[in-house]
Amino acid sequence: MTNDTKSPEGSPSPLRPITRCITGHNPQTGQAIIERDTLNEWQSFPDHGMAFNVVYSTNSMPANLAQDADLTAHDATIASGKLGLVPPGGTVCRVVDFAPGNPCVVHRTRSLDIGVIVEGTVEMVLDSGERKVLGRGDVVVQRATMHGWANPSQTEWARVMFVLQDIEPFEVAGKEVVEELGEARDVVKSSGN
């Protein structure tokens, strides 16, 4: 795989496209149906060697599925163009593709993030200097820490699926933990939390 291969839906990544399949209920029978079955769009950030694919978001926890309120809220969030890393009071599922040798962007989300390495290898970098190399199938539970992601391969792309959920405010070492985007400001909007 090379850095200049393009996927059909606009991601610079040569990894396979992502199909998003959302289920629902037939209103007459109550049986499960496929509500939506689409290829999801990518937002590319070539200067940072990555691309984002927002699979789904909610604006409340627990999510409200009645009369497809969650679908309506997700569509409105995406259409607004204002989605930060995690919606205040909600969740987001985002897939991130990392180019070979991507620059590591250190940042803090004020959220609980679960990351599953789907393809390739990534290195988690913490502000303490700790580093951890993770491969396909590994899982990271990132708890509002200052961190970054690097793809140590010079030839292969990496893909990580992240599920982020907003958290209650808290303090560490006498300071409130807040979102800190650093260089990630070029990539994502502030969540406002």
Score class of each variant (00 low, 15 high):
120 G>H: 12
73 A>W: 04
92 V>N: 04
172 V>M: 12
150 A>K: 15
174 G>E: 02
50 M>W: 00
48 H>V: 10
48 H>E: 14
70 D>W: 06
128 S>H: 03
138 D>V: 04
184 A>Q: 06
70 D>K: 09
115 G>Y: 02
77 T>R: 10
10 G>Q: 02
9 E>K: 09
131 R>T: 11
130 E>D: 14
117 I>K: 00
120 G>M: 14
9 E>F: 11
36 R>T: 10
71 L>C: 02
89 G>H: 07
51 A>I: 03
30 G>H: 11
107 H>W: 03
11 S>Q: 01
117 I>L: 02
72 T>P: 01
102 N>V: 08
152 P>T: 06
50 M>I: 08
184 A>P: 02
58 T>I: 01
185 R>V: 05
189 K>H: 13
8 P>Q: 04
104 C>S: 13
138 D>E: 15
94 R>I: 10
47 D>C: 05
35 E>M: 12
152 P>A: 06
161 M>D: 01
121 T>M: 03
158 A>K: 10
136 R>C: 10
162 F>N: 04
187 V>G: 13
107 H>D: 00
114 I>M: 09
94 R>Y: 01
43 Q>C: 04
37 D>A: 06
193 N>T: 13
88 P>G: 11
155 T>P: 10
18 I>S: 04
19 T>E: 10
124 M>E: 13
52 F>Q: 07
45 F>L: 01
135 G>E: 13
129 G>D: 09
1 M>I: 13
15 L>P: 05
106 V>Q: 07
139 V>L: 10
76 A>C: 02
